[in-house]
Amino acid sequence: MLNLKDIHKTYTADGVSAKVLKGVSIDVSEGEFVSIVGKSGSGKSTMMNIMSTLLEPDDGSILFKGRELTKASSAEINSVRRNDISVIFQAYHLFPYLTATENVLLPFMQGFAPIGKALREEAFEVLSRVGLSGKENRLPGKLSGGEQQRVAIARALIKKPAVLFADEPTGSLDSKTGNAIIDLLKELNATGLAVVMVTHSPEYAKAGHTIVSMEDGLVSGIEKNAG
């Protein structure tokens, strides 16, 4: 479903350029759970941002459902972001002045037509699916880190995407809360949602069907998880 081939990326900052990706290829099939592991600075987040259309590669090809995204217009990219993929981050990136429900509804606030009752009910439902029943009207500041990440996941789920990208989703959480988030991701994956997750934890990486190891801007190994 998503095939990245020979991706190159060089950052230039203050006149110094650094080759961060030197020809990385990763494939994600429908409903697959892919974990990406590797040392700090190996280029995991960079690769993830390119996979999720947030960053453009210098070279290489991104095929999503048969469409070449490196040649797509910005309108097409926006449509992919709106409808087909979702991203969550280590820092939950919620709007502090919007309630949990309003944060979840953010993807639908792009239009001039007001959000209807059906969508509101759906937001409630998604929030209950991630275990936040009864906390729908809280501001992020009144939620724990784990709960905030759940709101972010709910916001990612409401548009029913084909792929969920998660860059160290447990990075800011203690192990117990982290475990619960991983369990939630596994659960969602079991319903058919493809998941691509970057993690430092070998334990969490085992949640994936496929574990991609990165080292110094290259894929150093691909491991299929039998389980």
Partner: peptide, 16 residues
């Protein structure tokens, strides 16, 4: 900036 980044990631166009 952060808010803008989130909105962009959610598919908000530059025009929006």
């Amino acid at each position: 900036r952060n808010e803008i980044g989130i909105l962009r990631a959610l598919g908000y166009s530059g025009g929006k």
